[in-house]
Design a protein around this nucleic acid. Structure first.
Length: 427
DNA sequence: ATAGGGTTAG
């Protein structure tokens, strides 16, 4: 059955009912489970057929835009809200804020927040988490203070947002103090908060302290506790601890490919190629496959996806080669040289340079440069974390092209502008 | 109906 016939059937049913159980809303929700791209497509078809929408429809469609970084579509929905001249309710504005925050447009997010007549705890938490993932930790703290001054009682989500923000901006002691102060605000730390604390300590290099916390958590530890610690071992090159941590982690999450890759990276960084091989064999034996690294951009209504090393037709196209060569020359003058140490494989340097230059976010960046007007910001979303060399490359490219590049990875943002990044290189 | 924790080699 096509989307169109579904919509026709739905369009004739219960025209008057507009609650969350309205068929239109159930339709959008069920499509959402099938695929994000399909949801936005279905929503557009609904609009094309003059079917209208309720606030619930939009509140279901906006999180899809948020997840996809489909800012273009999200803005269109915002336009629909404005055009309808009705007062949007709190959940709708909350999801609108979140869509802006997850598209890296924290300014718009704040604007919506400021103009809300009523706010609930979700509004505050959304704003706070938005600051946090966009690396604006000072603004997050200021908002938290304002929350407390306004006698709004924070909940567990509030603390997750702030603690993870501290962790990613290197506010180690401040994060620790907040964790210890949680009970003063009437919140008992849960596993999620312990995971943040372990991350705060480990990321800043306090590996022993982090291990101590992880081992004494008064509840059954989750994969994210040991996963965070393993990542900290990777950041600080601690192989012996990594081996202890990995053992615990694999007991909890034997099927998470990321964990194996991380351990393999730790060995590769230390030049322990035999152990790298051993981890790979472990993966091959259990049939675990790494997720493919991919990046995407939205141009008009279409989402364009790029896979590392793939998209051969695109990489061979004249327009790609032209832009790539121009960029390469310009950033070389800035002093950019591919840092091949991020390619953790036992191959020669030329091969490494080739691989690192084919990471999906670079392909997406070139495509965005080709398909968007001069001076327009470039928004890229990646399903994995960015590698160190792509981070340097983006900085250089933002400078030579005079473009703002907003790169969102699994859960954080990098805003590159004029050769620097909002994360201040702590990540 | 809306907000939340670590991470992915070739």
């Amino acid at each position: 059955m096509t989307i169109n016939t579904d919509l026709k059937i739905l369009g004739n049913a219960n025209k008057q009912v507009w609650g969350s159980s309205h068929p239109k809303n159930i339709f959008i929700r069920s499509i959402k489970r099938i695929g994000k791209n399909k949801t936005l497509g279905a929503f557009r078809v609904m609009q094309g057929e003059g079917m209208g929408f309720s606030w619930v429809t939009l509140t279901t469609a906006l999180p899809v835009c948020a997840q996809l970084t489909a800012l273009h579509s999200g803005k269109e929905i915002h336009g629909q809200i404005v055009k309808s001249r009705k007062n949007a309710d709190v959940p709708l504005l909350n999801s609108l804020m979140d869509m802006y925050a997850k598209s890296g447009e924290i300014g718009y997010c704040k604007k919506v927040f400021d103009r809300m007549h009523n706010r609930d705890l979700t509004s505050w938490n959304t704003m706070l988490a938005g600051y946090s993932i966009n690396g604006q930790i000072n603004e997050a703290w200021a908002l938290f203070d304002e929350m407390i001054r306004s006698s709004i009682k924070p909940d567990g989500i509030t603390f997750v947002a702030l603690l993870s923000g501290c962790s990613h901006s290197g506010l180690t002691s401040q994060g620790q103090r907040l964790f210890n102060a949680m009970e003063d605000y009437g919140e008992q730390p849960s596993l999620e908060h312990y995971a943040c604390l372990v991350d705060i300590l480990g990321r800043s290099g306090k590996l022993e302290e982090a291990l101590n916390v992880a081992e004494n958590i008064p509840m059954r530890p989750s994969g994210s506790i040991w996963g965070s610690l393993l990542n900290s071992c990777r950041l600080h090159g601690n192989v012996p601890l990594a081996e202890i941590v990995a053992k615990r982690l694999f007991e909890i999450e034997p099927n998470n490919p990321g964990n194996y890759v991380m351990l393999s990276n730790i060995y590769a960084n230390a030049g322990m190629w035999e152990d790298v091989k051993r981890v790979r064999e472990m993966m091959a034996m259990t049939g675990i496959k790494k997720d493919v690294g991919c990046s995407w951009i939205q141009i008009k209504h279409k989402i364009h996806t790029f896979v590392a090393g793939g998209s051969t037709n695109f990489r061979r196209s004249a327009e790609y080669i032209k832009i790539w060569n121009e960029l390469s020359n310009a950033i070389k003058d800035l002093g950019y040289i591919p840092n091949t140490s991020v390619v953790l494989h036992d191959v020669n340097d030329d091969m490494k340079a080739t691989w690192v230059c084919e990471h999906s976010e670079r392909l997406a960046a070139v495509a965005a440069l080709i398909n968007t007007g001069a001076g327009m910001p470039i928004r890229i979303t990646k399903n994995l974390r960015v590698c160190g060399d792509c981070h340097s490359w983006m900085k250089a490219v933002s400078k030579v092209t005079k473009r703002l590049i907003v790169l969102r990875d699994t859960n954080r943002f990098h805003h590159f502008q004029n050769g620097t990044c909002s994360c201040k290189d702590y990540w």
